[in-house]
Simulated scan of single mutants.
Amino acid sequence: METSRRTVLAAAAAAGVTAAAASTSHAANATSATNSTKGRTPVKELFGRLTDGTKVYRWTLENGDTRMKVLSYGGIVQSLELPDRHGRYANVSLGFDNLEDYLTATTFFGATIGRYGNRIAGGRFTLDGTTHRLSVNDGENSLHGGAEGFDKRVWDVEPFTNASGAGLRLHYVSADGEMGYPGTLRVRVTYTLDRRGDWRIGYAATTDRPTVVNLTNHAYYNLAGEGSGDILGHELRLAASRYTPTGKGLIPTGELARVAGTPFDFRHAKTIGADIRTAHEQLTTAKGYDHNFVLDKGVTARPEHAATLRDPESGRTMRIATTEPGVQFYSGNFLDGTLTGPSGRIYRQSDGLCLETQHFPDSPNQPSFPSTVLRPGETYRSTTVHSFSAR
């Protein structure tokens, strides 16, 4: 039902540190979080300029034991710093230390994705009898909103602190026809870092014409630390008994296949490398995992558990709860050694992974999938919460 699509709640978060805060001890951070009812005031600095002179800013936030830096360009999470079991911090999100690399890369590191997360077959869909042709940027398909999706836009950013924490409200107006999508879409994405250090992302959008919407965040995680090597030893659990197999161009076939007895069974935690080299047609086609997992909970009014990721070496653990019905697990298959991160080390295959909460890929062309249609008078809402610990 389309109306069930709108039941998801909007929320918000982002965090990071100033240079001075970066030297603050783990114990001092914990004391600050205990003694204050608010997160630290977000700090703004110039990060760079686009070729037309448009300024791009970086916002630094911190709360609990979590630190985060966010760019106004693409709503990109440039870094996410977490302590290990010994209180030692590391940036666990892949990215770049300069704007130029973000402008040219096609990896979507840390970006807000829209209007439509994931692929739409043939770069087209039909809604209410009208066929809309989209920007094609992945073979014959449209990926993550097209060649200039939300990840390539400069967002208006409003910082805030309140009793719940500290964060940013990012605003963008997508014009009617942008990348081929109908309707003027007014979007608000809210990043909130609460007192526990949980990172909440809340999405909200309205339209003046019927359209489709599927927003997500495209952070690449390595809980051992950016530039530390591959994630094949990470342990992953997904609350999903089914997944959507793909065919040509990694477009879903429409089947909801059972994970039982396949390399796609993450219902109980296992290392990502345990089955990734298995001679399974789906793994061969995608060069690893790049599949939408169908969460057993479906669409929910409040965020419910979707995934748990743990690095045994550092003890860092990330738990993801969402209102969305799916999560795209991507094992960094196309990182090919051509990109260099802030650590000065190059990124190779499986040096990071994505867990993108979402509605399913190609839903506008798959009537059996949960609807992604948004109509005038409705509000798209979605919430995802990332909780962190180390033991």
Rank of each mutant, 00 (worst) to 15 (best):
Gly247Asn: 13
Leu232Gly: 05
Leu61Arg: 03
Thr284Glu: 03
Val213Glu: 00
Gly288Met: 05
Thr104Ile: 11
Thr3Gly: 04
Asn137Phe: 06
Met318Thr: 04
Val154Gln: 01
Ile251Pro: 01
Ser4Gln: 14
Arg124Tyr: 12
Tyr57Ile: 04
Asp156Thr: 15
Gly227Leu: 10
Phe109Tyr: 15
Thr161Arg: 07
Asp97Gln: 07
Gly261Gln: 12
His218Leu: 12
Arg6Asn: 11
Thr244Phe: 09
Ile346Phe: 13
Lys44Phe: 10
Ala205Lys: 00
Val327Asn: 05
Lys38Glu: 15
Asp65Ala: 15
Glu324Arg: 11
Glu304Cys: 10
Thr104Arg: 06
Asn214Ala: 10
Pro159Leu: 11
Val154Glu: 01
Leu99Met: 10
Ala105Phe: 06
Gly225Arg: 06
Thr216Cys: 12
Thr131Asn: 05
Leu103Ile: 01
Arg237Tyr: 12
Ala204Phe: 09
Ala14Lys: 04
Val136Cys: 04
Gly177Cys: 06
Val213Gly: 00
Phe369His: 06
Thr253Trp: 10
Ala22Cys: 12
Leu256Val: 00
Leu9Pro: 01
Arg196Val: 00
Thr161Trp: 04
Asn162Gly: 11
Arg345Ser: 01
Met1Thr: 11
Phe293Arg: 07
Trp59Ser: 04
Gly64Leu: 07
Gly75Tyr: 01
His144Ala: 01
Ala20Cys: 04
Ala10Thr: 11
Val77Leu: 13
Ala105Gln: 15
Ser36Asn: 14
Thr126Arg: 09
Ser314Gln: 09
Pro325Glu: 07
Phe47Gly: 00
Phe360Met: 12
Ala390His: 08
Gly87Ala: 10
Phe96Gln: 08
Leu215Trp: 03
Val213Leu: 04
Leu355Gly: 07
Arg6Val: 05
Ser36Trp: 12
Ala90Pro: 03
Val17His: 11
His305Thr: 08
Asp52Gln: 13
Ala321Val: 02
Cys354Ser: 09
Ala321Pro: 00
Ala111Arg: 00
Arg67Tyr: 00
Ala286Cys: 07
Gly95Lys: 02
Thr207Leu: 01
Ile346Trp: 06
Leu170Ser: 04
Asn333Ala: 13
Arg200Asn: 14
Thr24Pro: 04
Val373Glu: 11
Gly377Gln: 06
Asp156Val: 06
Gly202Leu: 08
Ile76Arg: 06
Asp101Leu: 02
Ser79Pro: 01
Thr41Met: 11
Ala205Ile: 00
Ala175Ile: 01
Ala166Lys: 02
Gly273Ala: 12
